[in-house]
Design a protein around this nucleic acid. Structure first.
Lengths: 233, 233
DNA sequence: AGGCGAGTTTGCGCTTTGACAAACACGCGC
DNA sequence: GCGCGTGTTTGTCAAAGCGCAAACTCGCCT
């Protein structure tokens, strides 16, 4: 009854090197679900009973502080694992996941984690590499926030988004999902006002073209120069 | 010839639940080394050939940006693993480790990682939990830097230090290793000047007592109030 | 077609905090 | 015991960018 075909996940980095048979096994306990844009896939603090893999769409991972401040920890791209609290020995989700667009994701019960890891060591290794990579990225983000001005941080964030979720547009590269000034502010630790001002300025200089929930980087190289420019050298 | 006794590591979280025999096996390829205060245990960017466990002392993990800015990612306490690039699938160290005081650390060749993990699943699980916990901490740090003022960040940092490496002093809790204003600044993304001013102010208010490379928290509760106090609510 | 609302733009004042500078003090080594 | 260097204190100044406020505009829903 699953109807899940192994071609869904064949070719994904996470399952690289697994045989067709292995892929079938992986999918046995997986359930696929559609998550409409804006819906919460899981909720910060909730009991983590499953882990997920994004088949299509884009997911925003958001942490909310006790005081209600939101911070976007990362965007998840197609083919990535997310909500893997189980891999970090956590029983609750440390953040919420929200579908940035209509999404399709696979979900496995946590108990499958140990199982799959034992059956397919390559899967375990790849998963832990993912966590390691995220630790690196997050530490890089701390460095950025410690040493860079807001302008550089936003430029870096846009370049990262374009790299991870860029789609060729007529006059540049467009970020492949709707993103507000507020979102960008929450990624970079600033306010939507400042983001708005900077995007306007950059638009004048021909670096980007932006509109309602939309950003197109028209001069990636120019933006890189902005990102590299240090003032506190 | 090793002379390493299993009592060195018995009782450590990382090796919890391992038999005496297992502990002996763990130590077979371990080498112990003394690292004088201020010396580098490993260097950012260098080929990672070993992973480490701190037996005694305190280690500062420092990242340096291409422009030369330094950020202290964390302090390692006794009994903790560090330099586990191998666990994250990295071939080079993403940061440097510097002995904050005279230290003793065990080192294993990377090849032992897979070995130990296979032999003692509990070891692997605990190690990955460590990485997961560090990812959490680092993300919490990003939140802090996004949403809190410098004063709150420094208060939080001090409280964390006191919790992790506090030692009872006559009139409060002292941080157990020499730490400069510059160090605190590099932990919190600010400048030593600002740290100095705030510590002075706090000293006046009776929250801390500080001197050359030394900080004593005399009123942890009061400092917590400072840490919680939000201005951008 | 029109209205509503979310998202955006923009102005202004002000606080926080960084930059620069200079003097100071503690402790170690000679 | 003295001098030097590292670490610390403190002052002044400047400006980045936040808070607040208000206007605006595009899309979408009815």
């Amino acid at each position: 009854m699953t109807g899940l075909d192994r071609t869904l996940i064949a070719g994904l980095e996470t399952f690289r090197g697994l045989s067709d048979q292995a892929l079938e096994r992986v999918l046995v306990h997986a359930r696929s679900a559609r998550h409409p844009k804006g819906s919460e896939i899981f909720s910060q603090g909730a009991e983590a009973e499953s882990f997920f893999l994004l088949l299509s769409g884009h997911v925003r991972v958001v942490r909310t502080s006790p005081e209600g401040h939101q911070v976007i920890a990362r965007y998840i791209n197609e083919g990535e694992l997310f909500g893997i609290a189980v891999a970090m020995g956590r029983s609750t989700f440390p953040a919420s996941a929200v579908a940035a667009v209509d999404c399709v994701a696979l979900a496995w019960p946590n108990r499958e984690w140990a199982e799959l890891q034992a059956l397919f060591p390559a899967f375990g290794a790849s998963a832990y590499q993912t966590i390691g990579a995220r630790l690196q990225e997050t530490q890089a983000q701390v460095m950025e926030m410690s040493t860079e001005q807001v302008e550089q941080r936003i430029a870096h964030a846009l370049l990262r988004l374009v790299k991870q979720a860029g789609r060729k547009a007529a006059d540049g590269i467009e970020i492949d999902f709707p993103i507000t000034r507020q979102d960008i502010a929450e990624m970079t630790g600033t306010t939507l006002h400042t983001v708005s001002r900077l995007l306007s300025a950059w638009e004048q200089r021909g670096l980007v073209r932006s509109g309602r929930q939309k950003v197109v980087v028209t001069d990636a190289h120019g933006l890189m120069l902005v990102a590299e420019h240090r003032r506190r050298d």
